[in-house]
Simulated assay, not measured.
Amino acid sequence: MMMKLSTMLKVASTVDTEWRSPLAEKILERWGYDEGSVYAFRYSANFIFICKRNKQTYFLRFNEESEKNVEALEEEMKLLNTLAGLSLPIAKPVASLTGKEVEAVETEYGTYYASVFEALPGKQYEIAELELHQFVKWGSALGKLHESMKKLDGISLVNRKTWRDHLHEVEQILSNQEIAAKKELQILISWAENLPVTKDNFGIVHYDFELDNLRWEGDQIGMLDFDDCSCYWYVADIAFALRDLDEKNMTNANFVNFIKGYKTKTSLDDQLLEQLPMFQRVHNITMFAKLLRSVDIQDASEHPEWMTDLRGKLVKKIDDLRKSFE
């Protein structure tokens, strides 16, 4: 989920021209870090800072307490450790100096939930850079993850959101003026309520298995950013991962090879696969609501240029999605 722009602006104001932040350094005191090694890396759903400890590279992830649920974060750490124990190439969490994998840190800028992760080796690709055989590997990696998820009977789902939670949140965010979006939401709720749910087709999904959350080292694909993992149909994860392929591409060689790779690792409900466009519509309506929530500041001359540009892009995306519902 994209954080509120007001939250992003507040933390970004602590970052200097050399990408250093006293706020990030204060949070990292819970883990310890090499002096002068902490730099801002990315702001989106979370604040991400790169850092070193004993010359090893790590990533700090944190967000304001209002943006996250601490029990869900702790459940995520439990899931990551379990998956790592199954020999999946996961960005593993690192315990703080007090042995915690999620720390609540009070600062002058507010209270933040923070975690630190090992850095994954490898390269990040854009979708246009991938060759056909890499679509097979990408699909295979997701299939292997899902097959592992199906075996996690001991992992509680209590603190993971479900598709129902997500669509209920959309309902809470949409104003009465969003007539087309509200109509689309009701169509999607009715559709989802009639889908079959079995142990083999429904469970914990990554939710954002896009290329920017993967690191490629040869044929091995490392996985990161599990904080949005939720309870859905496994096919939804395919739709969300491939959302940069538009519908007319769903019969092309890239898509076919992704599915080919996926099926080498786990089973796939082909009837649910035919519902891929509907799952993409679920993603669109949830993204629309998240963006409405995120853009909580007005355009203003005192904002830094990067914030003005970002806000403009998000507003355009909101308008494009709104039109798609009509």
Rank of each mutant, 00 (worst) to 15 (best):
S230N: 02
T111H: 13
Y207V: 12
S115T: 00
G222W: 08
V116P: 03
G154F: 07
K316F: 03
F240S: 10
E75V: 05
W31Y: 06
Q134E: 15
M149I: 07
G99R: 00
L28S: 06
Y232R: 05
G110A: 12
Q298Y: 10
T266I: 08
N254E: 13
S140I: 03
K183S: 06
E210F: 02
D227N: 10
Y109C: 06
E217I: 01
V70Q: 02
L276D: 06
E129I: 03
A12L: 09
Q172M: 13
W19R: 10
A84T: 05
E25F: 03
K100P: 05
V116E: 07
A239Q: 04
H166T: 00
A239K: 07
I259Y: 04
I50V: 15
T251C: 10
I179E: 15
P121Q: 03
S21Q: 11
G143S: 04
Y207M: 04
R164K: 14
G110V: 07
Q271M: 12
L188H: 02
V11I: 08
L242D: 03
Q280W: 14
I127T: 10
E106L: 15
F226C: 05
T286G: 06
K316V: 14
F41W: 02
L60C: 05
D270T: 09
M278W: 08
R281N: 05
E131W: 04
F47L: 07
E147D: 07
V282Y: 14
L9T: 02
L292V: 08
V170G: 10
G222L: 03
W233K: 03
A192V: 06
S156K: 02
E274Q: 14
L132D: 08
D212I: 11
V105D: 00
M307T: 00
S294I: 04
A141Q: 14
R160H: 01
W138E: 08
Y109N: 09
T17W: 09
T98I: 11
K313H: 15
L242S: 06
N252M: 15
K323H: 11
S175L: 14
Y58D: 00
V235D: 06
E118S: 12
V197H: 10
P93H: 00
I285R: 02
A84R: 10
T162F: 04
E217C: 03
W138Y: 15
K260S: 14
A95C: 07
S87R: 05
T264K: 15
K100T: 12
H303Y: 01
G99D: 12
R20P: 05
